[in-house]
Write a protein that binds this DNA or RNA. Structure first.
Lengths: 148, 148
DNA sequence: ATATGTGCAAATGCTTTGCAACGCC
DNA sequence: GGCGTTGCAAAGCATTTGCACATAT
């Protein structure tokens, strides 16, 4: 039902050489720069298809633009994204999932879905100024969230 | 610096009679229905201004549309929102907060911030939706999240 | 008076769609 | 050969902006 076209292959190939989140347009431009000739609409259609089939990770930026990248993990997970460079760490938060579903059900909500994204500054972009970070060992409770 | 115009007053008044998240367009229509004559651009401009000054709560829906409503609580909290009618329940998830900050620190991220929004169908809109999205079964543990 | 706010229409920017041509399977 | 795919341009949408006019303070 899903065919292998030159275009789809090129899109996947482009994505595979890239591990930060990128918009459809950025991906399209990148491909054009690489000499690929693929229509913008095709890029959109494929990103959508691939995302729906779970092969891509989608992230909606604050302004509503959709960002994609290759999946590292096909299951449900969240992202810790650097506001400066887009560097991304995936993580799981199983307790969160059940917690959300529980609270939703308590209120009679069904077909529940949620979005959780964490933004911050990674090691390379944290404090280029008088950074007085209280870098003391963090309280560890058990981990309810685990890096992938 | 901020003036009291008939339009701004009307917008605030409309919002005050309403406690679910609504889009700029919905708010505009509502006002029109109420006999108010305010330009759509004015609604957009004011919602933006008010949100920036902290008088309104903003929420970005999955498709990138911005939803607004009057603030109920100025502290940090999350929302359980009905995809159909915008009906909203606020809740706290204290464990989530510490969990997120812990995982962020583990990866050397600082200045961490996060967004968590839960979307679903409330009791009035669960049945008739033709939306056949594959839903994974959930197991529930204790709740670490509490309704506000 | 004058900085702000407003209305309208045109402009943006991202994304989707109609449709004829194309090319996997 | 049939049906998913593609390309292009046009259409959609939510939102923004340019500009002349109106108005709070």
């Amino acid at each position: 039902m899903q065919r292998n076209t030159r275009q789809r292959t090129a899109i996947l190939e482009t994505l595979s050489r890239q591990d930060d989140f990128r918009s459809a347009q950025q991906i399209h431009e990148q491909m054009k720069a690489d000499g690929e000739t693929v229509g913008l609409a095709t890029v959109y259609r494929n990103l959508q298809t691939l995302a729906r089939s779970g092969r891509l990770d989608v992230l909606v930026a604050g302004d509503g633009e959709s960002l994609y990248r290759q999946c590292e993990d096909t299951g449900h997970h969240h992202h810790l994204v650097c506001r400066e460079c887009g560097r991304t760490v995936e993580f799981l938060a199983p307790k969160l999932e059940s917690s959300m579903s529980a609270i939703a059900h308590e209120h009679g909500f069904t077909d529940v879905d949620h979005t959780l994204e964490v933004f911050g500054l990674c090691t390379d972009h944290s404090g280029q100024d008088a950074d007085s970070e209280p870098e003391q060992p963090d309280e560890d409770d058990e981990d309810e969230a685990r890096t992938r």
